[in-house]
Structures are given as C-alpha cells and as structure tokens.
Design a protein around this nucleic acid. Sequence first.
RNA 1: GAGUCUGUAGCUCAGUGGUAGAGCGCUUCGUUGACAUCGAAGAGGCCACAGGUUCGAACCCUGUCAGACUCACCA
Length: 776
Amino acid sequence: MNSDILPKQYKHEDHEEAIYAQWEEAGAFTPQATSTDPNKEPFSILMPPPNANASLHAGHAMYVIQDIMTRFKRMQGHPTVWFPGTDHAGFETQFVYEKHLKKEKKSRFQFDRETLYENIFDFVKQNSGLIENQMRRLGFSADWSQKTFTLDEHVIKTVHETFSKLAKDGLIYRDNYLVNYCPKCGTTFADLEVTHEDQTSPLYYVRYRFSDGEPRIINGEEIMYITVATVRPETIFADAAVAIHPEDPRAKALHGEYVLNPLTKQPIPIIEDEYVDPEFGTGMLKITPAHDPNDFELGKKHDLPLHVTINTLGKIDLEWHNPEQEPAKGRAEQLKTQFHNQSIFHARPAVVKLLEAENSLEKIDEKYQNKVTVCYKGKHTIEPLPYPNWFVNMEPLAKLGLEAVEQNKVELIPSRFVKQYQQWLENIRDWPISRQIVWGIRMPVWYNARENTNIFVSFLDTNGERHNLTLEKAYEAGFELVEIRAGLQSLIAPTETPFEISPESPGDDFIQETDTFDTWFSSGQWPLVVLKYPDGENFQQFYPTSLLDTMWDILFFWVARMIMLGTYLTGDVPFKHVYLHSMVTDSKGAKMSKSKGNVINPLDIVEKYGADALRIALVAGSAPGNPIALSEPKVKGYRNFGNKIWNIGRFIQISESEHGRSPAVSEVDANEFSAEDTKILNQLDELVTSVTENLEKFRFSDAALGIYDFLWNDFANGYLENNKDRTETDAYRATVSHVYFISLQLLHPFMPFVTEAVWQQLRREDRLLITSQWPE
RNA sequence: GAGUCUGUAGCUCAGUGGUAGAGCGCUUCGUUGACAUCGAAGAGGCCACAGGUUCGAACCCUGUCAGACUCACCA
C-alpha cells in the first residue's frame, strides 16, 4: 500500500493527530477493544478528575503512567478502561470566578445563590472540554465516551445517599465547633486546608487589674495587677478568664481571685490549668474560648462563657447578646463607638492605643517569633471562630482506612507513604464537610422555617436589596418565606435546629441549608460515582479498580478518603494499588510556580518535540514519590530516540524494497541463523520478560530504559551495524523484522505515536498496534 | 515537637547484598546509502561522613552532617 520510502526524519506533527483519530474511530479505548478472552481479569483506572475549568499543566502530564498501564493491559487482552472525568472543584472554582467578578466590579453578594450558581456553571462550561482535548494531544487513551462530572445528576444522587447513610449510622453531627474561618474567602476550611506560616509579630504584655482595686501580696510584694502576654490584643474583648499553672508559686495567692478584663472592665476569674506553660511569657495565659482552638477546649473544661466578638466578615462585633456580660453602661457605649464593626486589622492598633492610654500596656516585645494560621489558597489569616458546621465522625472510618492498608488490601507505592498515612489516620480529627460557598453540591438538609425563626438569613428582596436578619425579624418586616427563599444567599441555623434529610423539600414551610459539601466529600466517592454504585454494570465489572495513580500531595485529601468511604459503603476497597507518581519540577528540581516564573507548559513541549518524547522523558529516570525534573535537553534526547525508531523502520523498508518482504522467523530453517541472530533473538526474549515484569510491578523507569538501551545499543548500534554484509540472507532479514516489530509493541505504551506510525507503514495487516497482542 | 525521604560522574538522576550505570555535557576521530535528531573511541566516582552486620555493602543496622517534605503546634 505504500511503496514510497519514509522520509529521513520523523515529524511528529504530521502523524499524531491522524493516528489519534484512527484509534478513536476504531473504538480502541473501549473495554471491548481487545477483550477476546472473557476470563481475563478486568483492568481499570480512574483518572483523578482535573478541575473542570482547568487547563493542562505539567502535573497532568504525569498521568502518562495511567496511559502506559492502560495500553499495556489492553494489549495483554484484558477488558480495559481508563475512566476520565472532571471535578467541579468547589472552592477553587468559586475563588477564580469571584476574581473574575471583581474585574467586572461585581461581588457575589449581588446575586442570590441560585443565580450565582448558574453563572458559575456557565463560566465553567466555557472552559470545559479544553483539558480533554489537551489530554488527547498527549495520546491518552481514556474512554471519553464514559465521562463523569462531579455535578452530574447521578453523582449528586449518590453523594446525597452517602450523606444520608452516614447520618443514619450516627456519623454526622452539627457543632458550633471552633472552625478555621477565612473572612476573606467567606468560608470554613478543614485542618488540611490551612497552613502555619512563620512570622515576627509584636508580643504585647497587658495588665489585668484586680477587680476590687485592692493590692495583693505575692512573694512579699504588693501588686495591683497581673500581666499577660498576647499577640492578639484585639481578642481581649472576648476574654473569659486568665489561667495559671497550678504548681506556679503565685497560684495559691491568686486562687479564686478575679481580675478586670482591661477592655470591658468586667471581672473574669483566674483559673488553674496544667495546660499553661509557667516558663512562657509571664506564666499567665488569657483564655479566649471563642477565638482560639486551645482556649475553646479550656473554656469547655472550665465552663467559661463563649463570647463571640469577631464575626464572619472579620469585623469586631460588640453586640452583647447576654446582658450579664455587657460592660458597664458608659464603657459599653465607648467601646461600641470606637470598635464596633471595625476590621480586626485596624482594631489591633486601636486596642493597643487604648490600653496604652489607660496604662494597661506594660511593654511590647517587637521581635517575637510565632506562627500564624493561613488558608492554603490566598494565604489569608484564619480566624478561629464558632460557626455551626456539619461534621463526619471519623473514628470508625479511620479504622477502615487503616485496616485496608495494614492488611495490604491496598498497596501504597512507594511503601514509605504507609507511615505518613497511618500517622494521619491515627491522629485524625473529625471532618467538617460543609462549606459556605454556592459552587458545589448543596446539602440535602431542610429546616422548618415557621418553627425555627431564629435561623439567620441573608437574602435579596424583589428589589435586589440585601437583608441580613433572623427569620423572625424578616417576617415582622413583612417578607414572605417565598420571597426569602427566592433571593436567599445564605443561612445560619443554630446547631440545635431540627432538620430533615431529603433531596426534595419536605413541605412548603421548609428552607434548605445553603452550605455545600466540601469538594473532597464528593470526590472522595469518585470510584462509586464513576462506576455508578450500587447497580451500574461498570460497578459490577470493575470494582474494585486495579490501580490509582496520583501525586502524593493529595494522599490525605483524596486517596485516604476514597479508601474510607469506598470501604464504608461497599465493604471492599476501591482500588488495589496506589501509585504515587513524581512531582514534575523545572530542570533544576524546583517546584513550578507562577510566581517563580518557571512553569513549563507541557503542550509547548509536545508542539516542539512531540508527545512521545515528553511521555518517555517523564517516565525514564523517575521513581515514584520522588520529583522528576523536566528539562528540554532530556526531551530532545528522547525525540531523537523516536527518530531512531523511525529510521530503523526506514532501513528495513529500504531493504525490503530491494529484497522483498522479510520472512517470518518460523519460515526460516533454524540452521541458517548465525550466532549473532540467536543472541539478539535471545536478548529480545529476555527484554519481553523483563519489560512485562517491570510493568506488572509498576517499575516504569526500568521498563522504559530497558527498551531504550536494547533498541539503540544492542540492536541498532550492535546487531544492525555488524551485519550489514548479510542483508540478503533470510535469517538476517527475518531476525531484524521480528526484533523490530516486537520492540515496537513493547515501546508502544511509552511512545504510542511513532510506534503506531511505523507499524502501519511497514506492516501489511490491518491491525492497529494499539490493539495488537502483547508479546509473550 | 513527631515522623518520612534524599545525598551515586560536571549537570539531571536510575540502581533489586555479588566487577559502579544511563542521558545530557566534555575530549578526539568519522559524513557516498537507515538515521548528523548519526556513528566510533575516550576522560571523568573513597556511591555525603564515621562506625557496625556480612565471605562480600551504594544497598542492611547505628550515629553525624547537609537538603527536601509531611503532620502537629504555646499565649
């Protein structure tokens, strides 16, 4: 069919697109492509779903691991599928969308939640499909006819059912627990989503005077006050006590005493607790249960009141709801005028100024080193504050997760991650699964809006005006429930509010929770939603899946949760092996980041050197769990390798054009083979064995380098060069042809395009290389 | 504070107790027919350091130094 001799160079841009189209037309990516033997074990991989509105980055290029395994298993004749999909990426996407809104001088508060949701959906749709096409360019043989998006109807249904089951099993609870709240992002974060950053902050030494104004004698000295060190003087409004270590020599003299809160001038008790480090600061610790996680625990233990004085907007809130806690009349007015509704960033210097003016500030240590908690996304300072949130009790789930790995039902590769995994699960805290954003799966929870009028709502009325108030006040102001629901932005129901779990409204008087599920709650069910648990055919055939490949940074976020939720729901682990692939770095081993300006776009590399070169460059010389440096010289080297493959083909083609088609090895008398023929054929057999074994054991680098070394050194530079005087013998021609075509098959998972291109140019059979039978 | 990983050629890194490896780079030579995106030859290593186990250690154990990471976190 092709009598022309191949050009001297392999030009990837002339082949890749056409070959990919050929594969798709042939249905090569479906599980029916090669499965002639129904007894062969199904093989499946779930693609970690990229963000639906994302563009391909170097990390996605590492999914080549998945494509290699998929192609390998497909050629071995297993019913094979690589399931693709995309994630709505709740907070991430809303964050991007809000930046987009900001450019248009708009804010999310101008929209009711339904409209905002629709707008984000449209925004995401504009970019959807982009990453899929980019993955095609890398040659990924995923079954695109079976895509899942985490907001598909059946996904939402499954997520609802999982939540409902967890609730039935008593694993869901609401709590006013102190959460990591980011006032800038407007939502709660899980512990995993915040980090601690070093910083130098002033440490303020603040005087708390005795409530009766009388001096006390401590260690023979008359004192009028005690001194407490703090980096957050603006939280003094919410102080509920001062604590001292019980063994502290001063403790006895201070037992049962009260001091005045230096801001509110209200008396607060001095309590004793071993939590306090007598060596630190002044040995006295102010207790602010509403705004510090440790103090929250101490507050519970000592039954201290919870004063919330920082609100969800990051502003000082000096409405005292409990009259008993309200400061003296004049003082309350003064503080309100000065601080109410002030941003906490401005409040701090203002509070310091007031303390100074009232002689309550002893000194400032300007060089104090501490750590501040920030959100992972914008690095905004996190405000710990009480906020009604939904939690999953992780204890029973963590147990399932630990068992799965400890009993080797799930193998982590490399195994050193087992320790990290265990450490995390053994110390796990309950999982807050609710987020105060609209872009996500809304919780199927309903409150009776007639009976629970203390629910706080934010909504736009029919004129587009925004209201923040309780339902009770809203009804009083003449708003109908219908109008509130239509314009609803968010609601906060007190933790004790009764609720019903249902996908649909239980009645006219009900209002739905506005919180959405944490993205990881839905993606944590990825194996179930992709395979359509519990009744889907794919679930029956492919669960548990064979391999999960992802980067180690989401081992806790995603992998652990899939193992836990999968096992919890089905009784079986969702996958048998977890391969934690390399992080792709720049050529110097530095993490790629926009701010460093060292980001390499994999598509630029594909453009320049071809997908094959990029693919094998990412795999050869890399080890799981270790970084892999992506350098242009390396890719160029493998581009040259592709050209070498091409030219071996060209060499065979030229030879065949002179001497006719090469015979098969079986067609040649065994006696005609020279020692060198036999040697290279034996080496090939060994290569087949070692590549197969390496792939079975996920040793991708060894497999790739083995083929590379054999083809270039043993075969091309050795055998072919040394036997150029025998080009007319059948034994030689049969050997060359045999070695070459088997090698192409071995190399195909790594470099699918060039191998398929020469395979089709030289073979006189219709079968595509992608669906040819793996050599044994 | 607890834990993990890494340290091998100039660079980037594989390495599975048995003679130290690859790619790139470097030096010298070679273009008439598969390929210059090529070929031939070569230089370059106390495998971080110090002990130990072993017939034998880059590999296993202990410690030290250096770098990276994970988790937790005290005002």
